[in-house]
Structure formats: structure tokens, C-alpha cells
Design a protein around this nucleic acid. Structure first.
Length: 336
DNA sequence: TAAATTTGACCTAC
DNA sequence: GTAGGTCAAATTTA
């Protein structure tokens, strides 16, 4: 994050969220559904704004610098360069050929043997290539409906060098097919979500989420874990692994991507990083969808704080979100 | 048997 | 010339 301006803004917004959550907590007990809905809506809005700030700062301060040619000169940290190294050789080429590109990082807690996540689309692998300087080959996937519907969406999946459970996924192009498996079931925000459904969902998320407040390990991909655990009903059965399971709407892992209205990062790599762990949230090439989903998750996460006692809540070790390392917020004090 | 994956060859940008 | 990206035939899988 460039300077601390963005960070302060985010803290301000999160403080706002905190207040809204407190209000929501009060009204959840017996307040009017409309008021709860209103509060939820406000939380969504503020959260989205925060995400936008985070994303724009991340893009401006981190990736633009890299795109400007800092890759070679940047001081390498053991993990921070993991994702970019295998891709940097394609930067120039990509810049000239890509209309839309989104890069995310996902993890597979199921081990190195598990394939990368299912992201709600049907993909067909059409190639694999050893990449210079990378330990693992890069897989090339295109939309299954390329032929039938002319969907030109593609993605590249590559295991990171340092952590074989992490994958870098680059999405190219938009899906024009009508076969998104995930939209309805996986929680793609409906234009008008039923009030009860929204409440139930909030409750579900709240009951299952915990917020990790500890600071990141230095070796954790140079990013601050922002973790949550979730047996989230309606999203995925907990026993199902998001990376090893077949392509079903339940298998998701929300990681990043664009919040279109808030981020300028659509012209190049959107590299909002996250470690999905066992948290089955969506990943998709659709920036709007991911942004909204992310927003929902963060909202749920915030909501969860209302259900957790004042001390910093405990945290399952294997379920994390990660924010950009430059984005530093003392969450433990924030939620205390 | 259709669909998906693998893999060597080919194409193209740099 | 090199490396990344794609093609397409062969092979595997459901």
C-alpha cells in the first residue's frame, strides 16, 4: 500500500463496519428484519468500498511497480516473488495480446497432488508447458464451451516454486458461455436477495466464522493472513475439498479479482492473494462476481465478530485470507 | 463411445 | 534463436 493514506482509509471504513456490526448484533436479537437488512446492506457497501481501497492501493503500489520493470531489481523475498517469477517472462507478450487478465493465487491444502481449484467454470486442458525458471509446468485450460458457444475464456494454472500447495491462476478473457455452474448455488449475489435468505446466510456465516487476528508469519508468502473458518451452509459441505473435488457449485474458493466499480486494476494482473485452505469460496474469472462474493465473505467475516466475545477469537490454522503485505492493519486491536 | 487429458509439434512474439 | 502459447493426434477415463 502506498504510504499510509490508503491504510488509514481502510481503517476508517473498517471502523464503520465495526459499528454497523454492533448495531446489527443488537437488532439481530429481535429487531426488525428491515433494519437488519438495511444494516447488512450498509456493511456490504462499506466493505466493498474498503476492498476497493485495498485493491487500488495494492495495484498502484505493488503491481504497477513490477509492471514497470522492477521485477529483476526488486529485492526478492522467499515467497513474494513466487507467483510472478514464472509469469514475468510473458509480461511483454501478454501486455500486447491480452484484453482482460486476472491473476490470483490459490492454495490446495489437500496437498501437492491435488489439482488447482474448481472455479465454477468448466475447463478443458489443452496444453502443458515447462516454463523456464519454474519448477512446475504450467497448465493451459480453455472453456469447455469454446466450441459450442465460442467462449474464449482461458486460464493458466501453475504451481508455485516455493509452496507446491499454492497455485497461480491467470484468467484470460471473459466467459461468454451460459454454463457457469456456480452462480446460483455458490452464492453469486442475487440482484434482490430475499431478506430471510440474507439473514440466514449471515447467520450461517457468522456461526461458523472465526477471525484470525495474529500477525503473519514472515514466510507466509509475504502477506498478512486474514483467516476464517467456515462450515458455511449453502456454500460447501465441510468434508469436501475445494481443490480435489469435481466441478460442482459447492467447490469454491474466493480469492480475489476485481471489484469493477472500485478498482483500476482491470487492465493488468489482479493479484489479490489469498490462501483458501479449507474455506470453500469461489474463484472465477468473472471480476464482478468475485468482487461481490468477496464482499459477502468479508461482510460475513465482519458479522462473525459480532458473535464472538471481545477477546481476539481463536483461529483455525489452515484457513486464511491473505492481504497484501503492505497493507498493515492491527486487526487484533481493531476488533478487541 | 464421448469427453477429457496428455504430449510432441508447430506457431509467433520478442 | 528462444520461450510461451496453441494445436491436434493419441491415449485415457467415465
Amino acid at each position: 500500500m502506498e504510504g499510509n493514506g490508503g491504510g488509514r482509509l481502510v481503517v476508517t471504513e473498517l471502523s464503520h463496519i465495526k459499528e454497523l456490526v454492533k448495531q446489527l448484533e443488537v437488532h439481530l436479537g429481535g429487531g426488525s428484519p428491515d433494519l437488519c437488512k438495511h444494516l447488512t446492506s450498509q456493511i456490504f457497501t462499506v466493505t466493498e468500498r474498503s476492498i476497493g481501497i485495498i485493491r487500488s492501493c495494492q495495484f498502484d503500489g505493488h503491481h504497477r511497480k513490477r509492471a514497470a520493470g522492477d521485477l529483476e531489481s526488486a529485492t526478492p523475498s522467499p515467497l513474494s516473488d513466487v507467483s510472478d517469477l514464472p509469469f514475468k517472462a510473458t509480461k511483454k507478450r501478454k501486455a500486447s495480446m491480452e484484453k482482460k487478465r486476472q491473476q490470483i493465487r490459490v492454495s490446495s491444502t489437500g496437498g501437492v497432488e491435488n489439482p488447482p481449484i474448481d472455479d465454477g467454470h468448466s475447463w478443458r486442458k489443452y496444453g502443458q508447458k515447462e516454463i523456464l525458471g519454474a519448477k512446475h509446468p504450467r497448465g493451459y485450460y480453455r472453456c469447455t464451451h469454446r466450441n459450442s458457444q465460442g467462449c474464449l475464456a482461458t486460464k493458466q494454472v501453475q504451481r508455485t516454486d516455493e509452496d507446491a500447495t499454492l497455485f497461480d491462476v491467470i484468467y484470460h478473457g471473459d466467459h461468454t458461455c451460459n454454463h457457469q455452474k456456480t452462480a446460483a448455488v455458490a452464492g453469486k449475489p442475487q440482484p434482490e436477495m430475499d431478506t430471510n435468505a440474507a439473514r440466514n446466510r449471515l447467520h450461517d456465516l457468522s456461526s461458523g466464522l472465526k477471525v484470525k487476528t495474529e500477525l503473519p508469519r514472515q514466510d507466509s508468502w509475504n502477506a498478512m493472513p486474514f483467516c476464517l473458518s467456515s462450515p458455511v451452509s449453502g456454500l460447501a459441505p465441510p468434508e469436501r475439498h475445494p481443490f480435489s473435488a469435481p466441478s460442482t457449485p459447492e467447490n469454491y474458493c474466493l480469492l480475489g479479482g476485481g471489484v469493477p466499480s472500485a478498482s483500476p486494476a482491470t487492465s493488468d494482473s489482479n493479484h489479490l492473494s489469498a490462501v483458501a485452505g479449507a474455506t470453500p469460496f469461489p474463484v472465477a474469472g468473472d471480476a464482478e462476481w468475485r468482487g461481490a462474493e468477496f464482499q459477502e465473505v468479508v461482510s460475513a467475516l465482519v458479522a462473525a465478530t459480532a458473535t464472538v466475545a471481545a477477546p481476539p477469537p481463536a483461529m483455525d490454522a489452515d484457513e486464511c485470507f491473505e492481504f497484501d503485505p503492505d497493507f498493515t492493519i492491527d486487526i487484533s486491536s481493531f476488533f478487541a
